[in-house]
Structures are given as structure tokens and as C-alpha cells.
Write a protein that binds this DNA or RNA. Sequence first.
DNA 1: GTATTATTTGAAACGCGTATTTAAAAATAT
DNA 2: ATATTTTTAAATACGCGTTTCAAATAATAC
Lengths: 198, 198
Amino acid sequence: MTKSAGRPPLSETDIQEFRARVATHAMSIYREDGFDAVSMRRLSKAVGCAPTTLYAHFAGKTEILMLLWAEVLSDMEEHVRACLKGRTEPADRLREAALAFVTYWVDHPEHFRLVFMSNNVGRSEVDSFIESGNIENGFEIFRNLIRDLDPGCEDANVKSETLVAGMIGLAMCLNTISNYPWPTLSQMTRQLLSGTIS
Amino acid sequence: MTKSAGRPPLSETDIQEFRARVATHAMSIYREDGFDAVSMRRLSKAVGCAPTTLYAHFAGKTEILMLLWAEVLSDMEEHVRACLKGRTEPADRLREAALAFVTYWVDHPEHFRLVFMSNNVGRSEVDSFIESGNIENGFEIFRNLIRDLDPGCEDANVKSETLVAGMIGLAMCLNTISNYPWPTLSQMTRQLLSGTIS
DNA sequence: GTATTATTTGAAACGCGTATTTAAAAATAT
DNA sequence: ATATTTTTAAATACGCGTTTCAAATAATAC
């Protein structure tokens, strides 16, 4: 328990400072030159450290990319909330929010790729992101909209999580199989909601 | 239009033979050592050609991976059809088929990754796969089940394609955010279907 | 100062997808 | 055989994610 000699470990704030700096540079590279441009070598150059140092602070590239998720997700959330302005009818609100959700990912395929198709996502990495609450936030919007529509709803959880997963599936299909003669986006969203809006 | 001198181009059968040979080796590598083991260098070694030769016959790795899609998809289809045996009640059939669909992808995350998360999927590559009809087949199962449930259904297209996309979303979420406290698989599938089975 | 410990660095390596370029080989018409 | 054309091969290169390891550096206790 006595203080040992030698250089002390980095303080928690130092560590978080570094991680934040990495996040900043990663985001600016991503914004300027896109997903593929965010590479460990280039990022390390931007941060001003050796590529190896990044691996001393992150488990891998995915853990760095996750730093960008929060930003994209909050941008998406803002986009969804914006479309609720002025709407009061619960069913209408839910419908428009869902449409806005899917539309966002279809309109921003690069963001979709970043968040949902970052390969090699280790379980533990995602877990830490779950615990940060960012995912819960996304679900909560729709859970609340569902509860507004049907107060005292017992299975709001099942409904909201199925809805979100379904919408992600819609966005995914429209993104990756983009030339298939899909029905309209609003048609599919409406159909997806037909089990929620009775 | 006269026959020009020089070596003639490969015959169509020769080309398809080669592509089939590549497909065979790719599949065996995939089966034995998994997704990550299927690399151009290793594959070319197995096929017995130079890595560059592969690029003379395929646009890229993704086009080769698509050769494996058909195999996985037909395996999945078989799995879905198997669960229909002995069931006659339309709603029951649709429910069980949907559950089997999602279950398949959750039970075979490697297959899911291969088919749905092969990154860098160029539009034209996917298009050719669409035209091959393999995707239509997947939709058709569910379109038929929906029509059996509600003959004369006008929007069977919208319903089936939304259902499939939604199920893919379920599978995707369960695969990638695997430690989130999701509702039961059957709960979510049932909820997803509640807009189709009235 | 010296010793000790933590961290960063640099270089090298591995295999990866992909592109280019040059040469070789194969198959045909003449 | 020769010329022509197509197809392969080989070598090389680029940047990638990641790992390993030795050397350097920084920050502390004594």
C-alpha cells in the first residue's frame, strides 16, 4: 500500500484526456474524408503519437470507432426529435418519428456503416457501450412514444425494441440491397408500425 | 465479324468452370477455418493460380464471397421449410417460419456475417445477385405464407418485404448487441408479426 | 545523483485487399 | 513458323490492422 518508486501510472483524467483527443481527431478525419480514411496510422499521425501508442489505450480500432457512435447517434436523435415538433397526436408522432429514424440512416449510409457495420465488434466492447446508456436512449424515445399512444401498455419494452430492431433492418436492407424494387420507405415503416399502432 | 487471329477468349463454360472451382475452394476454406480465413492469397493458393488471376475473373473479394451466399441461403431456406412440415394452420406456419428464420441467423452468426455484413458491397455486385433470383426466393416463401393467411391480400409485397427486413434487423441486433437484455426471440418475432397476423 | 517503474517510441514483421506493370505462355489464323 | 491475340504469371507496391520487442523517455522515491 505504500507508494512505490518509479513513474506513477497515468491519472484517470490524463487517460480520458488522451482518449478524448483521439476521439476528436478520429471524428475530424471521418468527417473530412469518410469512414475508410480513419486508419490507425493516419489517426496516430493526427494525434501526434506512434501507432503503437493507440493500442496501449484502446483494444483496437473498433473501440476507437465507438467513440464516434455517440456523436452520430445524438445527431440522429436530434433529427428524430426535430420531426416531433408541433405534432401532438400520439400515433402521428410515433409514425413520423419512425419514418425519420429510417430516413436518417438511408440518407446517411456512411453513418449507418460506421455504427452498424463496423466489423469485428467484440462483445465486451459493445457491452461497455451498452452500459454507457447510449443505446438505452435510442430505445427510450420510441418506448415513450409507444407509452404515449397506449398508456399502461404492458409490453412497451417488447414493442419498442422490436420496432427499433425492425427499423434498423429496414435501413440495412435499403442500404445494402439498394437496387431491389423495395416498396416505399413510408409504406414499409407504416407496415412495420401496424403491429404497434392498432 | 470474321474470326480474328490470336488466342480466342475463354469459352463461357470455361469461365464458369473456373468460377465454380473458386467457389468450391472458397467454401471449403470458409467451412474449415471460418470467414476470416477466406483471403485472396490463400484462396488463390488453394485454387492453384496467382492472386492476380482471381482479379481477372472477379471484381473483388466481395464478388467471390457472394458465391457462398447462395449456399448459405439455401441452407437457411431448407431450415425454414423443415419447420413447416406437419403444420397446416396458416398463422401457425407463418409464425414458425419467421421464428425459424431469425433463429437460423442467431444460431449461425458466422453465416450472418458472411451474407449481411460483407463490407464494401458494391451496388453492381449485389444487383447481379438480385437478378439471379436468389433474393426473390427468400421473399417468396414469406409472401406465399402471407397469401395463404390472407388470400387476396393486396399488399402482400409490402408485408413480406417489411417482414423479412424486420427479421434481418432482429437477427442483426441480437448478433451484434448480443449482451443487451433483449426480450425473448419468440416475443420479438411475435411482435414483429402482429402487424401481419391480425 | 541513482534506482525504479510507467509509458512511449520506433522498427520490424505478418497477412490482408488491391493495383500496376511486365513478361510469359497458350491458342488461334495465316 | 510467324504474327496476333488472350490469358496467365510474377514481381512489386501501397496502405491497412495488429503484434512483438528493444530502446528511449519521463516521472517518481530514495
